[in-house]
Amino acid sequence: MAGLDGVERPWQHGGATAARWVPSADDEQALKALELYGDPTVEEVRLPSRPESAAIARRLAQCVVMRTWGLGPQIAEDVILLVSELVGNAVRHTGARAFGLRMTRRRGGRIRVDVRDPSRGLPCLMPVRPMDVSGRGLFLVDKLSDRWGVDLLPRGKNTWFEMRVSDR
């Protein structure tokens, strides 16, 4: 299903409009992740650089977006997908032992997600063709976020995206 921005979202469920987070069985795992790893809105959460950390980051993002910030399911789906993409890139491409996840709500109705890792290798936005089976991560970040970028740090980099949520 394509959204108003023309981006295909096959994972979307039609018509969900709940504005507040209501726990379900799946959400218990999200709450457990928050308890075990910490709240990325309070301080940077350190996660091990393993494939299963993408699922942990998705659960943390779900808690933050729906429970803490009270945003609807559409924005939650987009944020969760983009968090997963940035975390997946950090796990796959940096060779790091761990990375950091931070989520902030900013003035002007914006949210920002930061994934910090010790590699100074820059991510590259590549053209995507319909039959490609990989390499879509930054393409999705570029299409679904309002802004994204990479800040080089003395030891590593911070890859981030921002989304306006006040008018969505």
Score class of each variant (00 low, 15 high):
A2T: 13
A2C: 09
G3C: 04
L4N: 09
D5N: 12
V7E: 09
R9C: 01
P10G: 08
P10A: 05
P10R: 11
G14T: 03
G14F: 09
A16T: 11
A19Y: 04
A19L: 09
R20D: 05
V22K: 01
P23D: 12
A25D: 04
A25K: 01
Q29S: 13
K32W: 06
L36Q: 11
D39C: 06
V42E: 15
E43S: 15
V45C: 10
S49A: 13
R50S: 03
E52S: 12
S53G: 02
A57W: 10
A57Q: 11
L60G: 04
Q62R: 15
C63N: 00
V65P: 11
V65R: 10
V65F: 10
M66H: 06
T68C: 06
T68S: 13
W69A: 07
L71R: 04
L71E: 08
L71F: 05
P73V: 14
A76H: 12
L81W: 09
S84I: 10
V87E: 11
V87Q: 15
G88R: 01
T94I: 02
R97M: 14
F99S: 04
F99P: 08
R102S: 14
G109Y: 02
R110V: 08
I111T: 14
R112P: 07
R112Q: 15
R112A: 10
V113K: 02
V115E: 02
V115S: 07
S119D: 08
R120C: 07
R120L: 05
P123Q: 04
L125D: 04
M126A: 12
P127Q: 03
P127W: 12
R129F: 15
V133D: 07
R136L: 15
R136F: 10
G137F: 14
F139V: 07
K143E: 05
K143F: 00
D146A: 09
R147Y: 10
R147G: 09
W148K: 03
W148H: 00
W148G: 00
D151I: 11
L152S: 00
L153H: 13
G156V: 03
G156S: 02
N158L: 13
T159W: 12
F161T: 01
F161G: 01
E162V: 11
M163N: 01
R164Y: 08
V165T: 15
V165L: 05
D167K: 11
